[in-house]
Nucleic acid binder design. Sequence first.
DNA 1: CACCCGGAAGTTTG
DNA 2: GCAAACTTCCGGGT
Length: 633
Amino acid sequence: MCSVSPWSMTDSINLRTPTMQSTCVHLVPNTLALRPTQWTSQDVKAWLRFCVEEFSLSPNCVDKFDMNGKALCLLERKDFMERSPACGDVLYNAFKKHQHQWSRQIPTDCYVGLQLVTVPPNQQNDVISSPPTQGSKSPYISILPRNKDGIVSKMSCSESMDSSSSQPMDSKESNISLSQGVPTSMLSPAPSERCTSDSENGSPQHNSDPEMEAEFDPEHPTDDGVCRLLWEFIYQLLLDGEKYSKFVLWESEKDLTFRINNPNELAEFWGKQKNRTNMTYEKLSRALRYYYKMDIIKKVPGKRLTYQFLQHPKKIRKGQRGARPHCNRIPVNGEIQSSEPIPIALRPSSALSGTKSPPISSGVNADNCSQRSFQISSEYKTSESPSNINCILPPVNVHESTDYENLENKMAARQEVENYPQNSLLVVQKISEEIECDNAGEKNLNKYNRSDVSTPPYGTDINLQANGIILSQSLSYASSFSCVSRPSQTLTNMDEPSVLYDRLPLPQHTIVQRSTSLSPKRLSPEAASHFCTSLHGPKEAHYRQQTAYPYVQLHLPQHQYGSSHSHHYYPFQDSHSHSYQPISNMYQPEFPREVATPQEAHLSVKYETCDEQPEDLSIKPIARKMLQQKTCG
DNA sequence: CACCCGGAAGTTTG
DNA sequence: GCAAACTTCCGGGT
């Protein structure tokens, strides 16, 4: 068992998250694999009980959890907001203190976390039995043990999993249903959580506990433990014929022929697995048809919905690369129908990944603009980062309240944007300092003239105000960045406080809530422009449309910043080595002390799919396809 | 209407 | 940049 290393309190700071706008909060205990099913209901109760003790919560909340292992606890937001930044510390100490009382040994190196989910007030009644989904707008807050290097501990199977001692959850959950979610075995655990069992003999190792059996398929581990291939998924279902016969069943196991019992539900199930909310049998079957060519599956002629494995799934060679489950995929239909990109705050983190985003030079007006530009891309590539863990957190029960799939919620989100006061002067007040810099961060901070600039330390709490109105209270500087990188799901990327903006020399009273500026949901474009201007001095703030996911592209005018720096900046390009681009060279400590007027900032929509310089599309985000039509013909 | 087919293009990931 | 494995869309067929 791994030794428990110091816990990050910075994570707990993020308990006060800017995206918490609802009036209630879930508390979801999670275990090492972020699989609450590892806990018995007694464990969950115990967990909640000490939460009650430690935080003087209403005892009622202890009973307010479902028995599916996805324990929930409703808290009033005000209760939660009053928690101290040391909340996580208290939680952990309590966890340690009470652990011996619990019904089974829970590895001390497990991930213990709280999952905060925003829930519209009118839907809070439904929330008890509806844990948050992966696709939900749910900032995930976890308290993660770290090693001495500050890296989240990587656990091996033998260390972290004790499935033999695990106890089944409440028996009521034995009936799988869509509303209950995809079995966790088919979902995507964190790479570091997943274990590769010794299954060399290839024989199935059926666990007596059906839940546990579903948790992990020892027979067919993938390279990273993720069941991400369709045939694999189907095979998994077939393996547990009793449980999943409503989706698919063997027609003849001997001949490896199977029949899809309910194509629509299977597609939905598959869609859940891949976080593709619009999955249909039409699409699923298309994927199946691709297997024809690959000699993996063929159609059984004349028999509807019946297919045949051409070789035993155990022997199918896998060249897995892409097509991992998406993170919080927002329906494309909605994007297009709304003629407006989904607010960044609701976007999947992957949507912002830089993998498909070419450098700015490939975009319009990049090379010939003669401006130094850097791109606020946003992705942690660290495989062990908790963001990844959260990214692939099993999308347990889907619930309308957190899916943000329905039009109503989207309209509400848009309304929020539209209602945002335009041309607001944004002011940030630093209200506290909870500094926790790693060595690297400290070192880098020292590189700057701190007397001249106010670099918001990691974890700094700020207020974001507009026209005297507090827009977001107690934003965490660090979490603000995380909002950028994981706008829709997690604020836990605090493992690497040494992100770019920790090191930036910022003028005083500068808004450090970059994510705000990146989020059309949170800020009007004018306000975002304001932000960019105030942060970086007069420059163009290009609101760039990139594969339907906007982000801010900052151009530093050559005449102001010299000509020697034309490289692009990707803040997260190499989070492993922390080898950031020499942003310090680009920034001089002299920044305008005053927020520029809105007119000084220029906001335009750009997109990289066209070579042609697009017209200034003003500031209204438009769906990618519409943009393409407009500019490319 | 449900299912089936395969081309084409796009997306996401490793 | 490339490739795998889809996803999305579509026109057409049974």
